[in-house]
């Protein structure tokens, strides 16, 4: 049996009703825009894009090539290549291998390069949001650019 934790709904209530009008919504979108422009956010966004874009391009092209070869390759794929395996078999198994390798590489990249910063940003964003929501409507001060404090505890493991 799973341990009972806080209901997900209660946690998400802060941001429910996303298309809400009024000052509260304006303040919130203000918070999000300032976080979006902050240096740490730009860093994780760029780091993610630097991995995901080329990785997707590579595996989608490699898969398209495989499909194209299977459709038009014909008898050439029947030639023995490695031991008992012919070219078609080796290509198919290589698709399996590349999928495993790329999935592992992505997960490692994400947890080493981005997880900790992303988590810090999450708390900062939620904190600012709560503060803005507590303030009465009116001209809102531009929040200071978000800076991520040095990681306090090691590991960065979040459960």
């Amino acid at each position: 049996m799973q341990p009972d934790t806080m209901s997900g709904d209660a946690q998400g209530a802060v941001t429910a009703g996303t298309s809400a009008g009024g000052a509260a919504s304006a303040a919130r979108s203000h918070v999000y825009r300032s976080v979006q422009r902050s240096a740490p956010f730009v860093r994780i966004k760029r780091s993610r894009r630097q991995f995901v874009l080329p990785a997707c391009a590579v595996f989608l092209c490699w898969y398209a090539l495989y499909v194209a070869l299977a459709v038009v390759g014909g008898d050439a794929l029947g030639r023995p290549l490695i031991g008992p395996l012919n070219t078609a078999m080796v290509l198919g198994l290589a698709q399996f291998a590349s999928t495993f390798a790329l999935a592992g590489a992505y997960a490692r990249n994400a947890s080493r390069r981005r997880d900790r910063t992303a988590l810090n940003l999450r708390w900062i964003t939620q904190d600012q949001e709560r503060r803005e929501a507590g303030e009465p409507a009116g001209p809102v001060e531009v929040p200071a650019p978000v800076e991520v404090p040095a990681p306090a505890e090691g590991g960065g493991e979040v459960r």
């Binding site: 997900g8 709904d9 946690q11 998400g12 802060v14 941001t15 996303t18 298309s19 919130r28 979108s29 999000y32 825009r33 976080v35 979006q36 956010f41 994780i44 966004k45 993610r48 981005r114 992303a118 988590l119 940003l121 999450r122 964003t125 939620q126 949001e129």
Partner: peptide, 18 residues
Amino acid sequence: EQAHAELEVRALTGAGAA
């Protein structure tokens, strides 16, 4: 377009996630 900022921040950081 404005809300895309919110979506992007939430998607990449988990802020306000249920």
